[in-house]
Design a protein around this nucleic acid. Structure first.
Lengths: 341, 341
DNA sequence: CGTTAGCACTCGATAGCGTTGAGTGCTAAT
DNA sequence: ATTAGCACTCAACGCTATCGAGTGCTAACG
């Protein structure tokens, strides 16, 4: 569909534009040592590329900038994966080598590494609920009528809720109910917890109907709110250094979006595995129509655990980011692998 | 030091400026129904007020704006406490009435209420560590050689760390050490935990020297990292709607500051009890030299528990914010009172 | 003597205008 | 097919004039 020369020119324009953030003219391309055509020739090709929809002109008599379609072609066919050099690889790994024995820590760290190395905003989703199961369920009394309910998953994740007992129930009764739950529910995946609760444990706890309802409520609440704890972000303000965000209004809509955890989750959920690139308007959310989102899933033994992603302007260093996401997702998989043995 | 009329004029200027964000001229003051002097008279008074340092002129032939000193005088002598009307009081309370049985929830909610009702940025610090004590310390085994250590405080706060056992230690040995710790340390305030550990429990655990060191490390880590969990913020992007932040660079320095939890903690710590107002350069941090920070401590039985605060531009609705902080800090004290019975 | 009307003055903001220069598209020559 | 040449376009920039909100000062007034 495109000639070799057109591809080459498109490639050069995008590379240059990514660096300079300014429209690229024919002369500056022609001057490059790896280009041996005159500006006029380049101009002709650029005109063709524009007609084909790969380039745009902000206004007549300005250079060209890539269109969404142009970026798309670039990502699909042209981009050279940023050669994360051995030194950088080591750097990434060295971030992890310290005693990182908590999953939350690893994930948060991953987000930090990403944003630091790219200067974009990073978003990391922790492991999906369906791969985690209940390990332990416990009640710690605080006072006469209050207690903390603690849920531990097999991944080492801990959730907790403070509850106050109904007046007509003693701590002992409550504790008994918990014991029964523990006996029945340990090992059950969190997603099946609810149905399991109703079907199997229901009758057994019949006589503790009240407590049962209450505990169920706590479990539900916990499972719902877990979403908050699964999204980690870093470098949100990095966006502000990009020239495309010199307008405060844009910044606000973007930052507001990033604070909406549910929306973020929704964006990240149900992404196909592997590395995905969403360019500009390919994103469903209007607030990031001038951004690109690159995501990679990390998985253990074929099971997708979670997602790491980078949000930046459409004019983004795709090669570098994709390369980085690739090795980082693999490193994370290895690192997290031990939790799932 | 100031005549009644000067006070009145200063008051009017600040009130108007807070609303309009634009320099106030003599004519617009004179036109107000509650002012019966000609512009010329007002001008004379304004010139005097400027000489005294209460007003500033952005440039000749512009109106006057309040100086830091002006705001200070306003806050100390002139401001009418925003009459949080009964309806709003109810609104605040209604936010809380739902089943809020977790302390974190209450605090986070308080931050949200503040930012929603003021359109500024709110910062809330949870209860100080020294008022909380250890309630329970537990180990939940995950696999052969990993476990989750869980610490519960008397406030219902839960902290946890995943740990991996040294190879030469069994889970049973570890568990035993935990039992001893539990017996000795429950009820001890968190701040004294460390010294208590060394002095009293040290010998007892002598034979478990290795484990002891390890557990100590975990406790330390937990106590240190607790800071992160104690700072709650809401409405960080509200700043962006203020005209004084139309400049992206300012926004960035501000947002960067807000992300530094330790700095925030430092700013809030050791504040005198009651309501405090820090105007502009009265703040030590340069990044908020064009902001004002209003804080209120909330306390139970004379003991200060934590701090709630509002960060806004110096041109801030002091009356409203102070009034709101006042009733909210009291409401929180009541609500949190039950944890400290 | 405090207050006020009048007036010259200041200065940021805004609009209009010519200049500049990077970049284009087209044509004709190679 | 490529390229040199040239007329054309248009944002950006700087300059100037104008406008008007607001001031400071002086003199008049009750």
């Amino acid at each position: 569909m495109l000639t070799d020369r057109q591809r080459m020119i498109l490639n050069v324009i995008i590379d240059d534009y990514i660096r300079s953030a300014e429209p690229i003219g024919s002369r500056s391309i022609s001057k490059r040592s790896d280009v041996s055509f005159s500006p006029a020739t380049i101009r002709n090709e650029m005109a063709d590329l524009e007609e084909l929809g790969f380039l745009e002109q902000p206004h007549t008599s300005a250079g060209r900038i890539p269109s969404i379609k142009g970026y798309r072609y670039y990502v699909d066919h042209l981009v050279k994966l940023g050669e994360v050099n051995e030194q950088e690889k080591q750097l990434v790994r060295s971030y992890f080598t310290e005693k990182m024995n908590q999953m939350e820590q690893i994930i948060q760290h991953a987000a930090m590494i990403l944003s630091n190395m790219t200067n974009y905003t990073s978003i990391v989703l922790g492991p999906e609920t369906f791969t985690t199961s209940l390990k332990h369920f416990q009640l710690v009394p605080l006072s006469q009528d209050t207690a903390v309910a603690i849920i531990v998953t097999n991944t080492g994740h801990v959730e907790n809720r403070t509850i106050s007992l109904p007046e007509d129930m003693t701590m002992e009764e409550m504790q008994q109910a918990v014991n029964i739950l523990n006996a029945k529910l340990v090992g059950v995946p969190l997603v099946r917890l609810k149905s399991k609760l109703h079907s199997e444990v229901g009758q057994e706890l019949g006589r503790y109907a009240d407590q049962f309802e209450r505990l169920l409520g706590i479990l539900d609440q916990t499972l719902e709110s877990e979403g908050d704890h699964r999204v980690f972000m870093s470098g949100t303000t990095n966006m502000l250094t990009q020239p495309e965000f010199k307008d405060v209004d844009k910044v606000k809509t973007l930052l507001d979006l990033l604070e909406e955890t549910p929306t973020i989750m929704q964006m990240f959920n149900a992404l196909p595995s592997g590395i995905q690139v969403r360019i500009g308007t390919e994103n469903t959310h209007e607030a990031i129509n001038t951004c690109s989102l690159i995501t990679a899933t990390y998985s253990v033994e074929g099971k997708s655990l979670g997602t790491i992603g980078i949000l930046g302007p459409t004019r983004m260093d795709y090669g570098k980011v994709i390369g980085l996401l690739d090795i980082l997702s693999k490193d994370m998989a290895v690192l997290l692998g031990r939790w799932y043995k």
